[in-house]
Simulated assay, not measured.
Amino acid sequence: MHANGFAISAKEKKSRRLLLLKRSVPLYLLILPSLILLIVFTYIPMYGVTIAFKDYKTGLGIFGSEWVGFKNFTTFFNSYQFWPILRNTLVISIYSIVVMFPLPILVALICSQITSSRYKKFFQVTTYLPHFISTVVMCGMIMLFLSPSSGIIAKLLSFVGIDMPNLMGSASAFPHIYVWTEAWQHIGWDSILYIAALSSIDPTLYEAATIDGANKWHKIFHIDIPSLLPTIMIMLILRMGSVMSVGFEKVYLLQNSLNNATSEIIATYVYKMGLLKSQYSLSAAIGLFNNVINLILLLVFNFISAKISEDSLF
């Protein structure tokens, strides 16, 4: 009886799985195009990373080129440009996180406190709009505004007798220009996720807090912020997983010979080595090094977050 009962139970489980599979076929078909695109454009090209370990020659191809092991990595590590571009990348990236990570949370909290729907819509639209300005147009605006001869800011300062310095030619000013223009452009858009998290809070919590005599500040610190913490931790983990990745387009467009000392980052260096100087193996090695560091940081901060707050990606 026991064996027969076990056989019947196994048959039932198998039939249930088949039934569930049949019911889920439309869902599988729905995600199939995305899965194919992911495999074709993300996983299949991964074989190209092997050129980081080869002396790649375009005529020989990837598999025909000579295997050189970690030679390209040691070349990069021993280069006199290794430490400067690593420092520049970390400075801009960490500076961006310090400025741009808390500001969207602050914008979301401010937006949640606006009771008038008209003013709330105006606030949201004005903070979201800069996000849709293209990088090329944004860089053009920055250079026009900060021009020491014909820029808007220079014209305004000239009325009070102040001569505007050439900020775009100042190496020390470049990280500040990059980070604060990024903040102006993207904090509104980045706040959407936090606004959505705030909108999902149970209204009865606010009602109970009001009955207990809580004011707006009490509600923010004891209801809003604790409710945002899981979202904040997940976003922080993802942000720390891209510490070594600074936006290439904007840095490259704002870069010039005068600010190159602080604007040369890993992304622009890879572009110059790979496409301009045709050192494909070296640029691939640098890119692989960059991605490995990002992966390690992602795993480390995910582990720390799981231990401290029990919020993690997996």
Rank of each mutant, 00 (worst) to 15 (best):
V125H: 12
T89D: 08
L236V: 10
L37Q: 12
I177E: 08
P84I: 01
A108M: 03
I110K: 10
Q185F: 01
K277L: 12
I114V: 02
M240T: 10
F77Q: 07
A196V: 15
Y252C: 02
S309L: 12
L288E: 00
V270A: 00
F53P: 00
P33G: 02
F6K: 03
F303L: 08
S283R: 03
N166Y: 05
S191M: 07
S34W: 13
F159Q: 15
I152R: 03
A267K: 02
S65D: 02
F122N: 10
E249A: 06
L86P: 06
E182H: 14
N88T: 06
F76E: 04
F314W: 14
D212P: 05
A209M: 12
L198M: 09
H2A: 02
I162E: 01
A183R: 01
F248M: 06
L254S: 02
S112F: 11
G161S: 07
E182G: 15
N302P: 09
L156F: 11
Y28R: 02
K13A: 11
Y269C: 01
E12T: 05
Y178K: 04
P165G: 07
T210E: 14
V136R: 10
T210L: 11
L276K: 12
V25F: 13
F6Y: 06
L275P: 05
T115Y: 15
I44A: 15
